[in-house]
Amino acid sequence: MVEVATRTLPLSGVHGGSSKVRLEPAAPAARINLRVRAEDVAALSAALGVDLPVRPKTSASANGRTALWIGPDEWLVIAEGNTDIGSMLVAAAAKSGALHSATDVSHRNTAILVSGAGAAAAINTGCPQDLSLQAFPVGACSRTIFGKVEIVLLRTAEDAFRVEVWRSFSDYAFGMLAEGARDAAL
């Protein structure tokens, strides 16, 4: 008999939300943290099949991969699906031939999807960023703070966000968001 280890998402089965905000754990995803110098951004973009954005607070998606600008030489690349893709992303980056650092952080992070008319209000209960559509349009992303924990925030639609959070902080983040979702519906 073959023994198979099955991974459970840190937030598997959690519930929360309100009449204005829907909260759900995101499907498993592969992620790499990428550090590259400006002169090698093109080589890494070609190797990963997604153009690494070079403007602050922007993201780009292609071939099932999303690259989020985190800092002037730092990106978070997310690929939905089996987390084995994480090591595939590392391998793809290695084929670029350019000097870089790619770290598989698929299991360090987990993500919470926040959607609905009160999504921005729920996030703003713990996050100081301006989430108006002018300041934070669809596709905008940023590493920031939510309550006491660091998150990476990505706006996926006018009323939908992806909150990337370290797995050990995910209970806290989900609990805070659930409270924020209730407040947003008042």
């Binding site: 602050p56 607070k57 100081p128 960023q129 940023s142 920031t144 703070i145």
Partner: peptide, 11 residues
Amino acid sequence: PYCEEERSELE
């Protein structure tokens, strides 16, 4: 100067 905008002191 890297994010090119004003952000909260909390960050």
